[in-house]
């Protein structure tokens, strides 16, 4: 247990340089982009002297490290700059989107594992049977299908043709926030995009779980378990599944990266107001301060995801704690 804490603390310490690196990269990116913080704030027709004065006031002419420190402390205080499209602080633009994306990701993750765990287990336990072939075929199809095409098909079939699900937005208009209907509607809007993403994203987990199980199945300690007189179902539940699922639980954090890429397409197709959609729109409209903020948040999510994975792994696998 002592080792585990050490590992976790050390792992968290490593996260700081990662965050700093991310912020430096973003800062450089922001500098490289046309215009500056002033561009979104001020009428472009104001005379140059006034602009220059404003720049001086805002500290935009300071040396780069002073500006970097200002920039970082701004972020820490929640100041992400000004959106030139929305004409309001980026923080405000982003808040709702972050919440929407969070729920979409969460539901997608739940679906991903709800699909992956039973399919992976079945296919690993009964490998080289018809059932396994069927599941494996699905995973191959999943790998070969680009997410945006699949999402389009889903919208078209279940949204437009069958009309079972809404095809845009995150909630039906006109509902009072806080009511039961409001939350149900939110959930209803999440379902189809989450399912679309999960169905594609889950295939790698299915395959991983399958091969993990097939691998564990022929380990010596499984024979030990049988030699103890454990029934086949106990051998699977207690020894094989447990030992195969643990490494997968650890990948949980890394899934966030996949989720982010997936959400960029899926939110666009489902016109779902989340970070992914915001990202695409802002890129297209060159709303750079928003792009920067989104990339920053994505980056932080990925770094925290990896941190989470490693911590889970260290809790779950006693062999790692020693190191």
């Amino acid at each position: 247990m002592k080792f585990m804490w050490k590992f976790i603390v050390r792992r968290i310490i490593i996260t700081f340089p990662q965050l700093i690196l991310l912020s430096v990269l973003l800062f450089l990116m922001a500098q490289a982009m046309p215009g500056d913080a002033l561009t979104g704030l001020i009428d472009p027709n104001v005379p140059e002297e006034v602009k220059e004065q404003r720049r001086e006031e805002l500290g935009l002419n300071d040396p780069w490290h002073v500006r970097y420190v200002d920039w970082v402390s701004g972020i820490v205080k929640g100041d992400l700059g000004q959106s030139f499209r929305f004409k309001m602080p980026v923080t405000e633009v982003v808040t709702d989107r972050v919440i929407n994306s969070f729920w979409l990701s969460l539901v997608t993750l739940v679906f991903t594992y709800l699909i992956a765990v039973p399919l992976g287990m079945l296919s690993g336990r009964y490998n080289n049977t018809l059932l396994d072939s069927a599941i494996t075929t699905y995973t191959y199809i999943g790998f070969a299908t680009p997410i945006f095409i699949f999402a389009l098909v889903m919208v078209w079939v279940f949204g437009y043709n069958l009309g079972w699900f809404p095809t845009s937005g995150s909630v039906a208009p006109g509902l009072e926030p806080g009511t039961m209907e409001y939350y149900l509607s939110k959930f209803y809007h999440l379902l189809l995009p989450a399912l679309s993403m999960a169905l594609i994203q889950t295939v790698s987990t299915v395959q991983y779980l399958r091969s993990e199980i097939i691998d564990t199945k022929q380990k010596d300690f499984i024979i030990t378990a049988r030699a103890k007189g454990a029934s086949e179902s106990r051998v699977y539940n207690r020894h094989i599944f447990r030992n195969s699922i643990l490494p997968i639980a650890a990948f949980f954090g890394y899934e966030i990266t996949t989720l982010i890429t997936g959400s960029i397409f899926v939110e666009r197709i489902f016109a779902y107001p989340g970070m992914g959609q915001l990202f695409i729109e802002s890129v297209l409209l060159r709303d750079f301060s928003v792009v920067n903020a989104v990339v920053l948040l994505f980056g932080i999510a990925m770094i925290l995801g990896a941190l989470l994975s490693d911590i889970i792994l260290s809790i779950v696998d006693p062999r790692i704690r020693i190191k």
Partner: peptide, 19 residues
Amino acid sequence: RGNDMAMIFQDPLTALNPL
């Protein structure tokens, strides 16, 4: 198995569940 007849295996590292 494990009750009336039992077995000791060759490689004690792989014969035990690591987790």
